[in-house]
């Protein structure tokens, strides 16, 4: 009986679909064209710029072939900033996703005041970056910043710390700030995913006598893995592109480019050193590097998609 209905629906579907075959292409073309104007076309232009000697005020702009890329390979600062970028990204992605997951698990339980707590945790997401930076700088002021009050509670610390000027603290602080700003988003999305896990799975597990930890390990995590992966990707994007939170707090310092990510380097090179060609080269190269990561994700996403629509 059910099979017959399915068959009928299938026929109908094929029939209707034939008239709408071009629909997906029309929709997608619309979006691609829109993105092309604002993103793809400009990027193509930047790609061309990376083969020129376009430095503002240099006598004549001309093609220089691969010279900028040769410079790139000898540029220790570039490679160092790639390293910094990946360190920063790794900590922010892992930090934001795991903190988001933990708080989502915590706040998925039933308790009084749950909604208040959920709202409270999500506030940093709504908080503009520039505001976050301003108050963060104020808190980390070595002379009268409130962070000193907290730090001095730790035994052994009797002096105010130098915070962002301290080479050991600068990177952790910037990472902490970034996670603070980013994890509420992962929290919200993961919380949503948790609520979408079918109750029956847990009920069945209860019947089988599975412990809380086992339920988490064998039901919850597998069910929300696609969401966790999407969050990991969005957080890599967030951290790779992050500019404001780093530039306005450490400016890449305190010295030796300890916190200077690729985006900061691009900005410095193009907008402060006026070297647009090399700025474009850095940008294109950074882009190629993260493209690898993207491909990996899409591959995984596709496999999972196929499994779902099987």
């Amino acid at each position: 009986m059910a099979e017959q209905v399915d068959e009928g629906a299938g026929l109908l579907r094929r029939h209707r679909r034939s008239r709408w075959n071009s629909l997906p292409y029309t929709l997608v073309l619309l979006i691609v064209a829109y993105l092309a104007v604002f993103i793809l076309f400009p990027i193509a232009q930047q790609f061309l710029t990376s083969f020129s000697n376009n430095v503002v005020g240099v006598d004549k702009v001309q093609w220089v072939g691969l010279r900028n890329y040769e410079r790139l390979f000898e540029d220790d600062d570039f490679w160092f900033s790639v390293q910094v970028t990946f360190t920063y990204m790794a900590f922010v992605v892992v930090g934001a996703v795991s903190l988001g997951l933990l708080s989502a698990l915590l706040l998925n339980r039933k308790f009084r005041g749950r909604n208040v707590a959920r709202s409270a945790i999500a506030v940093p997401w709504a908080f503009p970056e520039i505001s976050a930076v301003l108050v963060f700088l104020w808190m980390c002021n070595p002379t009268f910043g409130v962070m000193n009050v907290f730090a001095r509670l730790i035994p052994g610390i009797e002096q105010n710390l130098n915070w962002l000027s301290d080479p050991k603290l600068a990177m952790p602080l910037v990472i902490a700030l970034s996670i603070w700003k980013a994890f509420p988003f992962t929290f919200l999305v993961i919380l949503a995913a948790l609520q979408a896990v079918p109750r029956e799975l847990y009920e069945a597990a209860d019947v089988d006598g599975a412990t809380r930890m086992q339920q988490l390990r064998y039901i919850t995590i597998p069910e929300i893995t696609p969401t966790l992966m999407l969050m990991a990707v969005l957080m890599s994007i967030f951290s790779f592109k992050q500019f404001t939170l780093i530039w306005l707090t450490t400016g890449g310092g305190p010295y030796g480019g300890i916190t200077e990510t690729l985006v900061l380097r691009i900005y410095q090179t193009a907008f402060r050193f006026f070297d647009l060609a090399y700025g474009a080269t850095l940008g294109v190269s950074g882009f190629v590097i993260v493209l690898g990561l993207t491909l990996l994700f899409v591959y995984a996403q596709q496999r999972q998609d196929r499994a779902r629509r099987r």
Binding site: I39, F41, I43, Q46, I266, L291
Partner: peptide, 25 residues
């Protein structure tokens, strides 16, 4: 898949990189 990839690709580009061509346009 290619479309999905394209979407993510565009997100990997720092705004600082495209602001000059966008302004010119």
């Amino acid at each position: 898949a290619a479309f999905g990839l394209l979407l993510l690709m565009t997100q990997m580009l720092p705004e600082a990189l495209v602001v000059i061509p966008v302004y010119a346009m």
